[in-house]
Amino acid sequence: MVLEVHNLHKQFKGKEILRGVDLTVGAGEVVVIIGPSGSGKTTLLRSLNFLEHADRGQLQLKDQQIDLAKPTKQQVQWVRRHTAMVFQNYNLFKNKTALQNIAEGLIYGQGMARQKAEGVARAALDKLGLADQADAYPAELSGGQQQRIGIARATVLHPEVILFDEPTSALDPELVGTVLNDMQALAKQGQPMVVVTHQMWFARNVASRVVFFADGRVVEEGAPADLFAHPKEERTRHFLNSLAENY
């Protein structure tokens, strides 16, 4: 297992958001989490790299076993250096160019020499066909370009797992394809990922495993073909039936 979460609990002001979540990600696995808005999917993702602090739970990442409720500063930093995240609103550093955005984590997160890091960043932009935007600031880029750079920023770190928090939700419809394309390419290279998304196409076609999440817990999970065609739980059936593509 690359990542294993056990019995994750989280409250916000007395309201239970996560009610004992178990989740595993194996080598090369793409785990896609689907479910209604407000069910805690994003909080779950953000608890894994301590952008939220869980009340209870165990995290195993590589060989490290970490108490999610009481991590040491070193453990927080270690987890963040071995994972990466892609955000709904891209969250690119606005005062940095595309190239600098990709290089920043390599230099200041992993201690790579600046010149080498910029070389890696340039190669990543080349691969995306965005080499001519290397010196552009985020404000000069489209949402799709920003998100693709956000993905490159995460990928170059070679993390154990990349966490995607609704990466296409803020995009114009015609830009969604390019971003999903990058993610699919990444999946094919065997990069372990956890993806929270409303893009059912991605869940059906790229996921190794789909997790249906509702009311702060995993309702059921399985291979996409099984889960979409033969959901076991009533809650899952109800959710899948209400999707726009089924109308």
């Binding site: 963040r80 920043e104 956000g150």
Partner: peptide, 17 residues
């Protein structure tokens, strides 16, 4: 925008940097 601090943290960049 506080999202950029989160992005930095998620990339393993220290709060100070």
């Amino acid at each position: 925008d506080p999202g950029q601090l989160e992005a930095a943290r998620a990339s393993g960049i220290s709060d100070r940097h």
